[in-house]
Each structure stands twice: as C-alpha cells, then as structure tokens.
Design a protein around this nucleic acid. Structure first.
Lengths: 190, 190
DNA sequence: CCTACCGATCGGTAGG
DNA sequence: CCTACCGATCGGTAGG
C-alpha cells in the first residue's frame, strides 16, 4: 500500500499522542504504516517536521472553532457557551492532534514552540475578552477576574481529552451542558 | 561531590518534569549532577526505577494532603475548600514530582502504571465523596453530579502547575480563594 | 518504497 | 565514581 504525506502525518499524530514525540521512533512510525522507517523520508525532511505539522493541525482546528464562536449573537454567556461547545468538539473530533498540541509542544524547537505558545495565548484571549464583556454588560458577576477565569475554563476543557470516552453514559451534549452550568452557576446551594 | 540516592531522584524529577522521561538520557542526568551517566548505576538498578520513585513521591504528597483535609470540621464546603488548598500546596511545593506524576505516568511499565492510576482514582474519590456529602446535606446544589464535578475541580487544580508562577502578582492564598469561589459560585451574575 | 548502510547515542555492565 | 566498553537502537542518507 502506497501512502500519502497526509497518511504519514496522521500516523505521527496517533503515535505522538499515545507515546509522546521522544517515545516514538521513525521505525515505530514506519511499522504503523507497514513500511520501513527509512521509507518515510520520501515524504518528509525530518521527524521534527512531523511534530510541527501535527501540532499545526490542532492549532488550526481551535482557530476555526473560535472564529465561529465569536460570531454568535446574544450576550457574553451565549458566546462563552459557543466557545465551550466548539472547544469540546475540537478536542473530541481531533484527539490525536489536540493531545499532541497540548502535551508535546515542549518537544518543538524554539521557533516553532514560540509560535504555538502565541497561538495558544491568542486563543485564551478570546475567552478572556468574552468574559470581560460579560462583566462589563452585567451578565457575568462583577469582581470576576477574566484572566484567571479564562484559565480555569480552559483547564476544564483541555482535560476532557484525558478522561472522556464516547462509549460512556455521558453524551457530548450533556457534557457540554454540565461544563457550562459548572462554570456559570458553580455548585454551592443558592 | 558525592551524591546520595535521594540526590539522584531529585535530579531525575527535575529533568523528567522539564523534558519528559523519554527525553532524558542517563547521560543528561549524570551531567545534571556532575558525574558520568554510568556512575548513576551505583545508586540505582535502572532508569525506570527513577521514574517510579519520582512519581511515588508525588503520589505520597497528595495522599498525605488528602487525609488531612478529610479531617477538617464543618460542612462539605469547608472540607472541599481544604482539599483544594491542600492540592494547590502540593502542586506548588513539589512541582517536579507532581509534573512527572501528571504527565509521565504513561512511561511507567504496566504494573507501576496500574498502581498510579489506582492512587489517582482513590484520590479523586475523596473529592467525589465530599461533593456527594454536600449534596446530601444541602450545602451543595441538588442535581450536581459528584463525579463530573470532581473531575472538573481536579482539572483546574492540576493545570495550575502549567501557568502559575510565584513571582507573579497573584499570591497562593488569593489563587486558592479564586479557585474555590469559581467552583462554588460560578461566574454568572445572580 | 527497499537495500544497505552511516555515525551518534542509548541504557547498561565489568572491573577497579 | 571513573575507565572502558557492550549490543541495540536512534535519525537519517545514497542509490536504486
């Protein structure tokens, strides 16, 4: 079976997500595709290039999702809800790329890592700005700090990949509802 | 300079936390201590043993913290507050061990990994039970699901290591207060 | 995509 | 803790 370059990147995503970049050898990757490790160099220049490409795919998915969510009409809570739902979709529809994006960015060389951190920061800023708008318009509680709140929210969302299974009793929509309710209402009795 | 076995485990924690288990060679570890990689085998039987020991240290810290927090008098919210404060202390006082515990458990061999996952589950259960008690006694909102809520809470707490810096403007107590307020009250305007 | 390699580095050992 | 190694594996290349 002949493979496309995209097949190689797919396989790299699977293995990097499962074993990490340093835990994956080019021979492992070849075996995953049924070819020799050395044969992969017909498609790519080096191992690091595969990491960059997998992580860029993940970053791009988040970018697309965020742009769409920011356009949602209504108040800040509605936009925040859309950001949350979009993030969950990205995490669960692109698990390998997202996992690699979240856990293996430290294996990138300096320039690429800086770029990824910038992308991550600008994505976080979308959450922060939405929360700040909610505070300003009065739909979110005064005194809420947009920065830490955005971080707490993204902490919950990024961790979903670590525990959620589609086969379980909790479907994706219910998951999204619970995350949103937790963030907006908390858990203390009124 | 002669080193103790504990010095070697300390250094392993630093490097595993920074570069990951597979990203750290025995020669890297030797360099960190000013000796040759091969000299480390006077202290240990193998590299995997170091990973086990670093992760066990992290697990033990969480265990100690949890036992203390469960003893706190008052309602479930007070105990949950204590669990949160304790967890933050462990994360920030033992960053290398905790980071390795959280991110490198997948590099453990099967038996050790199973043990760590069990420890993690039983720790999570303490959070879950505390939340369930709060729902039962009426201090936490009815309808709150203890399992997902415990996961959301731990997601926030475990991610703290990824962004919090002591040098910043937010001190640890303020951090703990914000996390607790976020979880209990949420961010929606009343 | 395979054959046939390369030099470098890996975890680890024997002996002092 | 060092000297002097070991076999295995690493990322990668030349040539077909």
């Amino acid at each position: 079976m002949r493979h496309s370059r995209s097949d190689v990147v797919d396989a790299a995503g699977r293995l990097f997500a499962a074993r990490g970049y340093h835990g994956t050898s080019m021979r492992d990757l070849g075996r995953e595709l049924g070819v020799l490790g050395s044969s992969l160099y017909a498609h790519i220049d080096g191992k690091q290039e595969l990491l960059v490409e997998v992580i860029d795919r993940g970053a791009a998915e988040f970018q697309v999702s965020a742009v769409a969510a920011r356009r949602v009409a209504g108040g800040a809570p509605a936009r925040l809800r859309a950001l949350i739902a979009g993030h969950i979709d990205v995490v669960l529809n692109h698990r390998d790329e997202v996992r690699t994006f979240l856990n293996e960015a430290s294996a990138l060389d300096d320039d690429h890592r800086r770029r990824v951190i910038e992308a991550r920061d600008s994505y976080e800023t979308l959450f922060r700005d939405t929360i700040a708008e909610g505070v300003a318009e009065g739909s979110l509680r005064g005194g809420v700090d947009p920065k830490t709140t955005a971080i707490f929210t993204l902490s919950i969302l990024n961790a979903i990949d670590r525990w959620y299974r589609d086969a379980g009793s909790l479907d994706r929509e219910e998951l999204s509802d619970r995350v949103t309710a937790f963030i907006l209402e908390g858990i203390a009795a009124p």
